[in-house]
Every structure is written in structure tokens, then in C-alpha cells.
Amino acid sequence: MTSELLRYTLQVALISFMLGSLADVGLKLDVRDAWTALHDKDFVVPSLLSGFVLGPILAIVIARLLALPEPYAVGLLLLGLAPCAPFMPMLSDIAKGDAAYSAAFIVIAALGTILLMPIALPLFAPDLHAGAGTIARPLLLLILAPFGVGIAVRQLSKRWADRCDPIIRKLVSFSTAVLLSVAFLQNWDQILSAIGTWAIAAQFIYYCALALCSYAVSFRLPHEKRGVVTIGVCTRNVGAALAPLSAVANADQRSTTMCILAAFITLIVGFAVAKILGRLAPKRDLAINAR
């Protein structure tokens, strides 16, 4: 009975977290600024390469080099196909990134995840036994729908969007606390068993490698755009990674554990990278931001 209650609570908290966090991002997204940034091919190309080519490849390479058990490797691949955490704009501000380009990266990441994950996951993780339709449905419902609703509300009334934002943010904070607490209670034995593997180390290595590689790939961009690409790529959308697992019957619990661990690890690495990028920002950019 307790186990069933925890599982049900976890599902409700996950859905609330995803719906709320993506709606909140949409409520704050300035479509005109994002649209302008999306026309900057010097920004879009490294964003796509870093997010959807380097991301999955590094996940597969690191999983094989460290000989991760298959369920942990599947979890890492799911994370590799889901760049850009919902809290990415906050970290981008710390890194002195451009807000318009942060909005553009969120759009790229959301659409890229929805399009690529249903195609790539069955190819690289056949043991998951999930078809493209099974993977796509929760992504459309839990990413595209709330994201689109948030954008639509802001387009209809910026005043209402600003009023709804703090309410949604509180809901997301509560859902996050419940999600992490219940996930730990339900999976504490799996989390402890992961300590004896390379699962945790693999994630730290992976996010740090993503930060370095994305920073190198975007070398032609000025700091305020380069920082956006780096932060967007080295943080992971844990909800999007968990969504396909919630739709697959009898998914290995260790894959879920790998994604849950990411909620902590991607924030730690992302914050550290943002602080470093903030210090690397040219003084000219710092002076502009100070105004």
C-alpha cells in the first residue's frame, strides 16, 4: 500500500513539475527576442551541434568507457537527448548570458528533444522496448503543450503572464520538493547501490565534458551568446528524460534512478560552470549588465 502511494505521488509530482516548469518558461519567454535570435545561424548551428550531436555521442562514449550497467547507460542516454534544464535562464544570468538568446536556446532544446528522442532512443536503447509513438506522446503532452500554453498566455496578455508567473513558480518549487523527496524514499536502495558503480561519477564527467565541448564548439560567438550555449548544453531537462520511462511498462528502476540523480548533479555542475563563465565575462559586458 505504501509503495503504491509513493509511486502514485511520484507520478503526480513529476507531471506537476514538468507542466509547471515548462509553462513557467513559456510565460517568461519573449517570442520576438527569441525569434530574432533564432535567425542567427552562428548561434543556432553550435547550439544544435552541441545539444543534439555531442550530447548523445558523449553519453554513449562515457557509458561504454566506464562500462556502465545497461539501465544506467539508458538513463544517461535519455539525459543526453534532453538538454537545457528549466532553471537554465537563472544560470545564464549568472554567466552574463544574453536573455534573448537564452529564450532562443530553450525553443531549440524543446523542439529538438521532441523530434530527436523518439527517433534516437529506439535505435540506441532497443532493450527499453519503447517505440517512437510511446516516447513521443508524453513529450508532446508534458513539454510542448505547457510550453505552448505559457507562450500563448504571454502573447495574449503580458500582464496576466506576469501575474501567473509567481504562482506557477511556487507550484514548481513545491512539486520539485515533493518529487525529489518521494523519489529518494522510493528509490533510496537503488541510489545507494549506484554509489558502488560509476553512475554518479559518469554524470559529473558527462556534464563537465559537455561544458568544455560546447564552449569549444561555440568559440566564434561573443561571451554573452557563448555562455548561453554552454549553460544550455551542460544542464539537463530531467523531466523530459523521465517522461519516456513513465510511459514504458516495467522500465528498469535503475534508469529512473540515473535521471533522478541528475536533478542534483546537473544543478551543481551548472551552477559551478555559470560562476566560472560569469568571471570570464569581459568587463565591458559586466558594465552593461550593471546598468
Score class of each variant (00 low, 15 high):
residue 25 V to A: 04
residue 289 N to D: 10
residue 137 R to I: 05
residue 241 A to G: 04
residue 73 A to L: 11
residue 190 Q to P: 02
residue 38 L to A: 07
residue 192 L to W: 11
residue 168 I to K: 01
residue 31 V to P: 01
residue 122 P to K: 04
residue 175 S to Y: 15
residue 214 S to L: 07
residue 253 Q to E: 13
residue 64 R to Y: 03
residue 215 Y to L: 09
residue 160 W to Q: 14
residue 124 F to Q: 07
residue 47 S to A: 15
residue 23 A to F: 10
residue 10 L to P: 08
residue 221 L to G: 01
residue 237 N to V: 06
residue 21 S to R: 00
residue 283 K to R: 11
residue 158 K to S: 13
residue 131 G to E: 02
residue 251 A to S: 14
residue 154 R to F: 05
residue 107 V to F: 04
residue 148 G to C: 13
residue 234 C to S: 09
residue 8 Y to V: 12
residue 88 M to K: 08
residue 230 T to M: 03
residue 149 V to R: 08
residue 228 V to H: 03
residue 80 G to R: 01
residue 204 F to S: 02
residue 197 T to M: 10
residue 210 L to C: 07
residue 291 R to D: 12
residue 160 W to P: 02
residue 37 A to L: 03
residue 221 L to S: 00
residue 86 P to Y: 03
residue 212 L to P: 12
residue 94 I to V: 14
residue 147 F to Q: 00
residue 289 N to M: 11
residue 225 K to N: 04
residue 189 D to E: 14
residue 80 G to D: 03
residue 96 K to F: 04
residue 116 L to I: 11
residue 251 A to N: 13
residue 125 A to V: 05
residue 154 R to S: 04
residue 71 P to W: 06
residue 202 A to E: 05
residue 191 I to F: 15
residue 88 M to S: 05
residue 209 A to Y: 00
residue 37 A to R: 03
residue 100 A to P: 08
residue 223 H to Q: 11
residue 151 I to H: 00
residue 61 V to W: 07
residue 1 M to I: 10
residue 289 N to S: 10
residue 125 A to G: 12
residue 272 A to I: 09
residue 92 S to W: 00
residue 223 H to V: 02
residue 279 R to P: 06
residue 94 I to G: 06
residue 260 I to C: 08
residue 6 L to V: 01
residue 146 P to L: 02
residue 39 H to P: 02
residue 185 L to R: 01
residue 118 P to W: 00
residue 130 A to W: 03
residue 168 I to Q: 03
residue 194 A to S: 15
residue 110 A to F: 09
residue 25 V to S: 06
residue 158 K to W: 07
residue 50 S to A: 15
residue 1 M to R: 12
residue 275 K to I: 00
residue 127 D to M: 10
residue 224 E to I: 01
residue 119 I to L: 14
residue 142 L to D: 01
residue 217 V to K: 02
residue 260 I to L: 12
residue 10 L to N: 10
residue 263 A to H: 10
residue 99 A to D: 10
residue 55 G to M: 09
residue 32 R to A: 08
